[in-house]
């Protein structure tokens, strides 16, 4: 059984085949509501520039994910497994309030305003349970996404980081081994990809938990809006709703 994912951003060309296949398979969400997206980052002064992409989706935080804490209706759970684990939203319970969007340090969930539901990566858990890979990892043409068991993927990620360092990418690092389920190989510092410091992840993002659905919905306007505006710099999120 496979339960988590290693994303090697040093092998990512930013094509968004992962986004496309994910959207194709989970197509009940409205146009523009995507469970995984592609972000583009540039740094440096011309001509000493660096360009990288990052697959941006739920990191499946270990233990107490911020989204779980803020969900006013307990729709989000951490589902443990010895080989990893995942954060899942119970669709039927979700009220689409958007608190999870505001709470998430990765800007991962999106609210589908037409369906009034939060959407995010489910790690294709049904496929994993059957021994299949996620849709995104099967689609990725460069093999940048590996689905598997956590310990194995940590070793694989560490080996890749060593190889990158040997090649002169001395900032290469493995992100997520401490705090998140999903692991990412990065060529550069996590901050260059707008990733929060890993040490800040464990349960320090606390927002008031609203007991009633109405309370949650009120706060959504502010937090949901804030969350979405973060995506705007991301090329693949420049989408328009179908009228």
């Amino acid at each position: 059984m496979k339960y988590t994912m290693l994303i090697d951003q040093s092998r990512c060309i930013g094509c968004a085949a992962c986004t496309l296949e994910c959207k194709n398979q989970y197509d009940e969400a409205s146009f523009g509501v995507l469970r995984t997206r592609m972000a583009r980052y540039e740094k440096g002064e011309f001509p000493n520039n660096v360009l990288r992409y990052r697959k941006n989706a739920c990191m499946h935080c270990l233990e107490e994910a911020a989204c779980i804490g803020v969900c006013p209706v307990d729709a989000i759970s951490y589902v443990k497994h010895e080989n990893g684990g995942m954060v899942l939203i119970d669709r039927d319970t979700c009220i689409g309030c958007g608190l999870c969007v505001g709470a998430c340090p990765f800007d991962a969930p999106m609210v589908d305003e037409e369906r009034v539901k939060a959407e995010k990566c489910s790690l294709c858990f049904e496929r994993g349970l059957k021994g299949d890979e996620t849709y995104c990892s099967e689609a990725c043409p460069t093999g940048a996404i590996t689905f598997g068991e956590r310990d194995e993927l940590i070793s694989k990620g560490e080996a890749r980081v060593s190889a990158l360092i040997d090649k002169g990418r001395d900032q290469a690092n493995l992100y997520g081994a401490e705090g998140t389920g999903v692991l990412i190989v990065l060529d550069y510092d996590p901050a260059d990809y707008e990733l929060p410091d890993e040490s800040t992840l464990a349960g320090n993002i606390s927002l008031p938990k609203f007991a009633s659905a109405a309370g949650g919905l009120t706060v959504m306007a502010a937090l949901g809006g804030l969350g979405l505006s973060c995506f705007r710099k991301i090329r693949t999120d420049r989408t328009d709703k179908v009228e």
Binding site: K80, R91, K130
Partner: peptide, 23 residues
């Protein structure tokens, strides 16, 4: 309906039952 409590876990023992296409 896949309704979880806040902390849930998958029973590893169920793995063998999942080899088939459905289950």
């Amino acid at each position: 309906k896949l309704s979880f409590s806040r902390r849930a876990f998958l029973k590893a023992t169920a793995a063998s039952a999942l080899a088939g296409a459905a289950g």
